[in-house]
Simulated scan of single mutants.
Amino acid sequence: MTHVNVLDPGASPLDYYGFELRRLRESAGLSQRQLGDILNYTGSLVGQIETARKVPTVEFSERVDAALGAGGLFSRLLELVLRSQLPAWFRQVAELEARAIEICAFQMHMVHGLLQSPAYVRAVLGALDENDLDDRTAVRLARQRIFEKAEPPIFWAVLSEAALCQEIGDREVMREQLAHLVSFERNPRINIQVLPFSAGAHAGLTGSFTLFRFTSDPTILYTEGYGSGHPSANPATVKDCSLRYDHLRAAALSLKDSAELIRRVMEERYGEQGDSVA
């Protein structure tokens, strides 16, 4: 008799997802392979998700909902699953991102996670550890789904010019990433300003930080270290960094000039003309 791994649906959102997937599949009288054929995935993948060894994707969840008549159950569960896969210290940040009506971020050396392209995400997460890179990339990209809500937050990002010049991945990855930034140019809810090198000393020299504003709750300041996050609602600290952010936005290029600089860096630093040898 084939051993069947028994999941505890209360162990985690991923376990619950797998438990429900197996329950509804068996109720439909389908084997893992048969369901995989219907979904256009392998039966092995279905089995890995059922046993909580693989993180499901948006596309997989939507197809399962349709195939098993689940009424959107798996698409709804996916939000909890992906959030639970974030590092424990970062889960509170994802919750802040999901609840905030306005997010103001300053980034020193890399593009903010909410603005990262898939290839850039893989390069960042794979810098020291390539284990489970597909799943970890999907989890980080899932944070960007906050912009798909009926009322997405206003997002304001001030990026140091250094973030455009730090070559993460390779030149093709950077071209794609900068093109991704430019794609937000006409989105009034996602605003990107570049703080140029010519700004010199500025109010953000201490490091990157993010401010989360809510309808009724106090504003939260978030800073980050190696493997740890530091949210704070201390009024004096929040007031100080709010003032710093105002100065950073004032010192940064306008939205239009920022987009033009991003295009220029994309073409001059990472453009295809640089591939040829003189």
Rank of each mutant, 00 (worst) to 15 (best):
V139E: 03
N191K: 00
L159E: 03
S31N: 15
S12D: 06
R122L: 04
L68Q: 03
L14K: 12
I103E: 10
L77F: 06
G18S: 07
M110I: 03
G200W: 03
T57H: 08
A119R: 01
G113P: 06
L21T: 01
D37N: 05
F147S: 05
V265K: 00
E176I: 01
F74K: 01
V139F: 08
A278V: 09
S61I: 07
R63H: 10
A105P: 03
L86E: 02
C165G: 12
V93R: 10
S44A: 15
S276I: 03
I262F: 00
I146K: 02
F74V: 05
L141K: 05
V265I: 12
V158Q: 09
P153Y: 01
R171A: 11
R186N: 03
I49Y: 05
Q273F: 12
F106R: 00
R244V: 02
I192M: 02
L159H: 02
R33C: 09
E167T: 11
L73H: 02
D37Q: 11
A66V: 09
G10N: 14
S160W: 14
M266G: 07
V238A: 06
F147K: 03
N5G: 09
S75Y: 05
S254R: 01
L255H: 01
G229C: 07
Q273C: 10
G10M: 14
G229R: 07
A203Q: 04
A70M: 03
E95N: 11
Q92H: 15
S228P: 14
L96K: 06
E148Q: 11
L253P: 01
A236H: 14
F212L: 03
Q92T: 14
E267K: 05
G29I: 03
Y120G: 02
R23P: 13
F197E: 06
W89K: 08
A179Q: 13
R23A: 11
L45R: 11
P56H: 05
V55Y: 07
R99T: 12
I101K: 05
G227H: 09
C104H: 04
L178A: 00
F214C: 05
T223S: 15
A66M: 08
K149N: 12
S208K: 01
R22W: 12
T206E: 10
F90H: 13
L141P: 08
I168E: 13
T223W: 11
A250S: 13
R122K: 08
R263T: 04
Q177D: 04
V182R: 02
A162L: 14
R249M: 04
Y270C: 11
A138Q: 07
L114G: 01
Y226K: 11
E172Q: 04
A163V: 11
L80N: 15
A66S: 09
L248I: 07
G229P: 12
F197H: 09
G72Y: 10
P13I: 07
A100G: 15
S12F: 09
S160G: 15
I101Y: 13
L7H: 08
D8M: 11
G207C: 01
A203G: 06
I49M: 08
L45T: 14
